[in-house]
């Protein structure tokens, strides 16, 4: 509700306006930098004097298309696997009483307190042992076992009334059928939130893929862009990869920003609900 004096409203409007500008400007600057010829990158004008798609063409001559494919593949498979295992387990923990239930769930909850980076080293030695370094699996498998997502889905499943299941049991439905035909359709918003959480996490991961993927063919976008950026320091100006970097950065952030623009409330709600529930 807008309220208060005219001066108060002006003051608030100015602060909010400033925050919106400070947030949006770097993104705008990235976009126009990616559209400027590389030689004019340092040009300070809010509207570029000449616009070209040259950087995007240059980006296609690097390994960026391959890296995008890797990132999409890894993020998509992590999401699918992660949602499936967490939904099954979330249902199991929410709807059944069984020996070891609180202990097992407690261990999963406790693992939330362990920082992710501390697990990267052991995960690396496991993957090396199984010869899985430089494969998608080395990134997908650790990311798919997400305790926060399990916790979130368990909450959704435990809100369903037991009568729903009892009625179907009387009709002779098996337990997996109950899960699949009754529970899953009812927790669809939860599955969406879980999927988004897993996808975003995998899409933006840095340390884990950096450790697991050392062959540039297998890089994800964050690793690849960081790799291109590290070449800037070698300073051969005419071969500077700035063009590919700016275009590649735009390409890498567009899919999720588009999702945000299309879904708006649902997108924001999914990612903050996970935070507030935990």
């Amino acid at each position: 509700m807008p309220k208060g004096s005219f001066a108060g409203r002006m003051g608030r409007g100015t602060v909010i306006g400033l925050i919106v500008i400070v947030t949006a400007f770097p993104l705008y600057w990235l976009l126009i930098s990616s559209l400027k010829p590389s030689t004019r990158l340092g040009e300070v004008s809010l509207i570029p004097s000449s616009v070209t798609l040259g950087n995007y063409v240059a980006a296609f001559d690097t390994q960026i298309p391959r890296w995008m494919l890797n990132t999409f593949g890894i993020a998509l498979l992590t999401t699918l696997l992660g949602v499936v295992v967490a939904a099954l387990a979330g249902f199991g923990f929410a709807r059944y009483r069984f020996r070891g239930r609180s202990l097992l769930f407690g261990v999963v909850l406790a693992s939330l307190a362990i920082p992710e980076y501390a697990l990267v080293l052991p995960q690396f030695t496991i993957m090396r042992q199984f010869g899985l370094l430089n494969t998608w699996a080395a990134v997908i498998l650790p990311l798919a076992a997400n305790a926060l997502v399990l916790f979130l889905l368990r909450q959704y499943f435990s809100q369903l009334p037991e009568e729903l299941f009892d009625a179907a049991r009387l009709d002779g439905s098996g337990e997996f059928r109950l899960f699949w035909t009754i529970a899953v359709p009812l927790v669809r918003p939860g599955l969406g939130a879980a999927g988004l959480l897993l996808f975003l996490n995998a899409w933006n991961a840095y340390l884990l893929p950096l450790v697991m993927l050392t062959n540039s063919e297998q890089f994800t976008m964050p690793i690849g862009l960081a790799f291109l950026h590290s070449q800037l320091n070698f300073g051969i100006v005419e071969k500077s990869p700035w063009g590919a970097i700016t275009a590649g950065t735009v390409i890498s952030i567009v899919p999720l920003i588009l999702c945000l623009l299309v879904m708006q409330r649902q997108f924001i709600g999914s990612l903050t609900a996970g935070a507030v529930k935990a």
């Binding site: 295992v85 387990a89 097992l104 261990v107 693992s111 362990i114 501390a118 697990l119 498998l141 076992a145």
Partner: peptide, 23 residues
Amino acid sequence: PYLFIAPFFLLFIPFGAGSVLLA
């Protein structure tokens, strides 16, 4: 119930709990 939670723990044991112990 164990069949429902098994797939998650198949991943969680090596890459979650197991990795903590390994670290």
